[in-house]
Simulated assay, not measured.
Amino acid sequence: MMTVLLVLHLLVTLALIGVVLLQRSEGGGLGIGSSQGMGSFMTGRGTANLLTRSTGILATLFMVLALAMALLGRGQAQRGSILDLPPGPAIPAQPTSQLPPVTTNPAPAAPAAPAQPGVPTN
C-alpha cells in the first residue's frame, strides 16, 4: 500500500512541477501555457484559469498523499538515527596502483660551523 501511495505521490509531484512551469509569471518566465501557437483552443484567460485550478488540485492531492503516507508509516518500527548505530569494522586501504611507493629525500644538512671565528687580519 505504501509503495502505491509513494508512486502516486511521485506522479503528482512531477505533474505539479510541470503545471507550475507552464504558468506565465509576471516576469515572463517560461510562459508555455499561454502561447497562441497551441491552436488557440482557449483564450489566454481560460488557459490561466485551467492552470490555476490544476495547480490547486495537484497541490491538494500532494498534501493529502503526504499526510496519508505519514499516518500509514507512523505504526511501522522506528528505525532510529544512523548516529545511534555502533561503528563498523575498519576497512583496510587497498593500493590503487602498482607504482612503487614515493620516498622523500631528507633535506641536506647545514654546513658545519668553523671551529674558531674568523677574524680579519689587515
Rank of each mutant, 00 (worst) to 15 (best):
L67N: 08
A66P: 00
E26L: 15
S25D: 07
Q94N: 03
N49P: 00
G118V: 06
M63W: 15
G56T: 14
P95Q: 13
A48S: 10
A93V: 10
A59H: 10
L30S: 07
L85E: 09
T55S: 13
R79L: 15
F41M: 10
I82D: 02
P106T: 05
L83K: 05
A93T: 12
V119I: 06
G37I: 06
T47K: 15
A93Q: 15
H9S: 15
S25E: 12
G27K: 12
T121Y: 10
G73K: 01
L21S: 12
L83S: 09
A77Q: 12
F41Y: 13
V102W: 04
L16I: 02
A107Q: 15
P114E: 06
A90P: 02
V64D: 03
A112N: 10
I32D: 13
P100R: 04
L71S: 05
M42R: 11
H9L: 08
Q36H: 13
L72R: 01
F41I: 10
R24W: 07
G37M: 03
V64I: 15
S25W: 08
L22K: 02
T60G: 15
L16H: 11
T96N: 04
L61H: 14
S34K: 12
V4R: 00
G29D: 07
D84M: 06
N105R: 02
R24Q: 14
G46I: 09
S97N: 12
Q94F: 00
G39I: 05
H9D: 06
P87A: 14
G29C: 02
L6V: 04
L8M: 04
R24A: 15
Q23D: 03
N49R: 05
A112L: 09
N122E: 10
G33P: 09
V20D: 02
G37K: 04
L99C: 01
T103A: 08
A109W: 02
T103Q: 11
N122S: 11
L16M: 06
T3L: 09
P89G: 10
A66F: 09
T43C: 08
T47Q: 13
V7E: 04
T121C: 15
L21K: 01
L85P: 01
P117M: 05
Q98W: 00
L58C: 09
P89H: 15
P95M: 06
